[in-house]
Each structure stands twice: as structure tokens, then as C-alpha cells.
Design a protein around this nucleic acid. Structure first.
Lengths: 215, 215
DNA sequence: ATAATACTAAACGTTGACGTTCACAAATAA
DNA sequence: TTATTTGTGAACGTCAACGTTTAGTATTAT
């Protein structure tokens, strides 16, 4: 009679329960396919095969190809938000603080599983406008906000001279992403390891602080 | 009015001569399609239609889809080389010199017809490795070389303190391309006009020169 | 056991794109 | 005019992918 519509995690429903690991496997396979070959070239059939899942399961869960991309974007964005949250630690000096922040960011960006992401999304942005916007907010947007706050605080303390913190934040993000990103994208160099990433971040921070040091 | 062609070389061959304007029209249409939708999603049939050309003509001239992309990449790379060559003018001060250089570069990069180029190429780079490399050499690679030379000369003159000119060139290129590029790619802002571009370039140069000024 | 739900495999219809062939029209040199 | 080459349109074969359907299996609560 009275259906227990409990909004808790315990389903307590009849029938075979959904296997959440399959959802993860599908999204992992979709990531590989979409990022590696682009949205159009990726095939649901191969995604299903690689995920060890029936094609029908994908359609049951995500509706269609666009829905699968939508879900993937959401997961990646959440993932990024989490990573960024963990990066915002306090440290002794501003320099160390920035280096930590940048290292976390670049380690994330220069990861095989995320690297092709925006390239695909950019091409698809006309068809997936809100998805692209959401990803920007979760990734670069959040990054800019956090960094802007940090820089404004440092300016107030007198550590640096940064009258326009948002613009400065964009400068630093540009220096970090920078040319290494270009070389990577065109396959001129290999993916850098942690040591190279840290060195690159340090260099960016140094240049940045030289430009914005207190007079 | 009939135009008498006297500039071009006479083919002096029998039969109907090839219409070079058709080649251009095909490449223009291919650019729109490839850059806008990506390689896989673009269709030769629609490219032919948009170019006002028979599909067979495309196959006669370019062999297949990959050949068409190949030719397109080559044309874009040549185009870029030409533009960069024109940008390298001497000017009174280093600052003016850099601003001119950057303005030419960004005007080219932030043009609708080139903007999606690397996004497509990145996804296709595994299948079109040499095309990607060629484009990198013609574009960012040349840019870095030219800029490195300019900065090394300025360092020798004592105008600035740049012991590692190539790294500094990468920094400046990063600052220029920077965050505006990201916002554009995700559709957060519209394509900037010349005024905004010049302002952005100026800012980049200022930050750069503050960081690398002579002590 | 039974009902209910998740899931699979295989087949299906449909669409769109690649690349080819063929008959024919258009343009030019001889 | 004639030979030669460019270009067109329409049709064709092939293939890969989307998304659906169906019949049946697996897993759970009652």
C-alpha cells in the first residue's frame, strides 16, 4: 500500500539491482574513445565492447550518444572540482603556495586521461553548449576564482603589487599552461613527468613574481 | 569583360584547362567543414556542395579524404609562414617591436577560419602525424624561433635581462595566447576585435618586460 | 516459487558517408 | 572539326554506426 519512497541510498527494490561498476566501466571506456578519437569518430559499439557491457545497457542508462557525453562531462568536471579543492592548501610563503597550486593543476591537466578533453569539447561546443560551459566553470573558471582570491590577499598583505588580481591570475595560468601544452598537443614532445612539471611550474611562478613583485 | 591572363604561365596543353578557382573553393569549403566539425564528422559530399563542385572533382584532385586534409594543412601552414614573415618588422623600441609582432600573431590566431584548426589536428594527430608536425613547425615553431632571435639580440644590447631567450620566448607566447584562448574555445566570450587584441597584446608585453627588465 | 528488474546477444531497419563507375557535357589545342 | 582533357550528375556497392526490438538469462525481494 504505502510505498516507502525513501530518498536514501538503500534501494530495497525488487528485482536485480543495477551494477554501478558497469556505469563506471562505461564512462571509462567512453572517456578513452571520445578523448582519443573525438565524438563523431567514437563508436558506441566499441565502447560497449571495451567496457565489457552490452550495447543496450548503455542506451538504457544514458539514452543516446549525446547523453553519454553529457554524463562524461559531468563526471570529469566533478573530478576536476575535487582535485582543485584539494590543491588549495595554505603554505608558508606565497611562492610555495603558488607552486603547490600549479603543480596540482598541471599534474591534472597533463594526464593522459584528461589531455584530449577540451579538444573534443571545443569541436562539439556548438552541439553541447551547456556541457562546454559547465566544464569551463568547473575547470578553468574555478581555477581563476581561487587564484584571484589568493593573489588579492597577497596584495593586501603587501607581498606583491597586484592591483588587478583577476588579470594577474589569468597571466599565471597562461604561463603555466603555456607553450608546453602546445608542444604536447602537436606531439612534438612526450608527456612530462612530475619532475618536469614541477620545474615548469616553478619557472612560471618565478617569472610571475618578478613581474608582480612589490616595488 | 574578358580578362586576358598574361601574368600566369601558359599551360600549352591540349584539352580543357583545370580551373584553379575550383581548387581554392574546395579548400575553403574543406576548411569550414574540417575546422568546424572535425575530420570524422565532415562529409565530402557537403564540402563538394558548398564549394559548388562535383564530388568526383575532389577525388580527382586530392585522391581521398586524408589527401584533402593533407593539402589543407599545407596551405594553412604556408599561409601562416607568410603572415609571420610580414610581421617581423623593425621598430624603434623593443616594446613596440614586440607589440607589433604579437598583434600580427594574435590577429591570425583569433581568426574564425584558423581558430579551430589545432583542435581538429590534435585529435587527428595520431593518424596525421607528419601533418601535425608540419603545422607546428610553420606556426608556433617559427614563432618561437623568430621571437628567440629578437630577445637574444635585445639581451645583447642590454635592454633586458634574458639569459635563456628560448624559454622567455615561450613565456611571452604563453602570455599572449593565454587565457583569452581558453575562454574563446569554450564559447564563454566572443571573438575579440582588433582593439581588444591590441590591448591584450600590450598587457602581455608589459608583464613580460617587467619580469625580464634589466636589473 | 514467483514476480520484478537488470542485463545480454543477436538481429533488424535506417541512415549517412566513402569512394567508384559511366555516360555525357564543356573547354581548349591542334 | 577532331582529339584531348576537365568537369558533372546520377547511380552504384560497401560499410560502419545509430538506435530498436525481441527472446532469453541473471539476480534480487517477497
Amino acid at each position: 500500500m504505502t510505498d516507502e519512497d525513501s530518498d536514501t541510498e538503500a534501494p530495497a527494490r525488487a528485482g536485480r539491482p543495477t551494477d554501478e561498476r558497469k556505469t563506471e566501466a562505461i564512462l571509462d571506456a567512453a572517456r578513452e574513445a571520445f578523448f582519443g578519437q573525438g565524438y563523431a569518430a567514437a563508436s558506441i559499439e566499441r565502447i560497449a565492447e571495451q567496457a565489457g557491457v552490452s550495447k543496450v545497457t548503455i542506451y538504457k542508462r544514458f539514452g543516446d550518444k549525446a547523453g553519454l557525453l553529457e554524463a562524461l562531462v559531468r563526471r570529469q568536471a566533478d573530478n576536476m572540482t575535487t582535485t582543485i579543492g584539494e590543491a588549495n592548501r595554505d603554505a608558508a610563503t606565497l611562492e610555495v603556495q603558488l607552486v603547490n597550486f600549479g603543480f596540482t593543476l598541471l599534474s591534472f591537466l597533463f594526464d593522459e586521461s584528461h589531455f584530449h578533453f577540451d579538444s573534443m569539447l571545443v569541436i562539439e561546443r556548438d552541439r553541447q553548449r551547456e556541457a562546454a560551459q559547465r566544464f569551463f566553470d568547473a575547470g578553468p573558471g574555478t581555477m581563476r576564482r581561487e587564484l584571484t582570491k589568493m593573489l588579492a590577499a597577497a596584495h593586501k598583505r603587501g607581498d606583491v603589487h597586484i592591483p588587478q588580481p583577476q588579470r594577474a591570475a589569468e597571466d599565471l595560468l597562461s604561463l603555466w599552461k603555456g607553450f608546453a601544452d602546445l608542444e604536447l598537443r602537436f606531439g612534438v614532445v612526450d608527456m612530462p613527468g612530475p619532475a618536469r612539471i614541477r620545474s615548469h611550474v616553478r619557472h612560471g611562478v618565478k617569472v610571475f613574481l618578478r613581474a608582480y613583485r612589490a616595488e
